[in-house]
Write a protein that binds this DNA or RNA. Sequence first.
DNA 1: GCCAGGATCGTCT
DNA 2: GACGATCCTGGCG
Length: 197
Amino acid sequence: MREQLDPTFFARSVHEVAPELIGCELKVGESAGVIIETEAYDASDPACHAYIGLTARNRVLFGPPGRAYVYLSYGIHSLLNVVAEPEGDAAAVLIRALEPTVGVELMRARRGRSELAELCSGPGKLTEALGVGLELNGADLSSPPFAISPPPDGWRQVEVVSGPRIGITKAVELPWRYCAAGNRHVSRPWPTVARAA
DNA sequence: GCCAGGATCGTCT
DNA sequence: GACGATCCTGGCG
């Protein structure tokens, strides 16, 4: 297994952590993928679960960085976030899409789909593919079943582009969605790119 | 190919 | 009692 991200990596501004997670490899159990799409949420942000203050659901956001914040969306999907910023500062990075690298057959079985681009191209899809459920809420991302490693050489110089976040109704104008430019595993096509000639 | 609608449940008012 | 940081299916063109 490769070296993992240093714990101090996560104890910074979520607006630094979110773009820098692009290209990093996220492993859960026997499956892994390269992170290609993220979104940043901080406590001053009306769309953030921590905006309303500490509650039973969002308490992990206020805790130590480098943990997993997992919650149920629409009563159906588990969504995975990485807690950022020092303990006491609530902020997190939503993992929106991965490019599958390890354990692809296991992902296919869990998703019930065969096309590679349908396995992890969405926040609800990747948690199903990786086997992430609510029981992992609060878990340390540097301990099994989790592991996060820095980008391998081929990913180190990938261009990261930003734009508006998806699926929210508040603070829609904030350009806090980040993605690896041109990657076809994104959850949605990039809304603002000009068409190539 | 695009769009509208439904599934489903924990959390907060 | 209402509302999602979503996904999939079916109907239509």
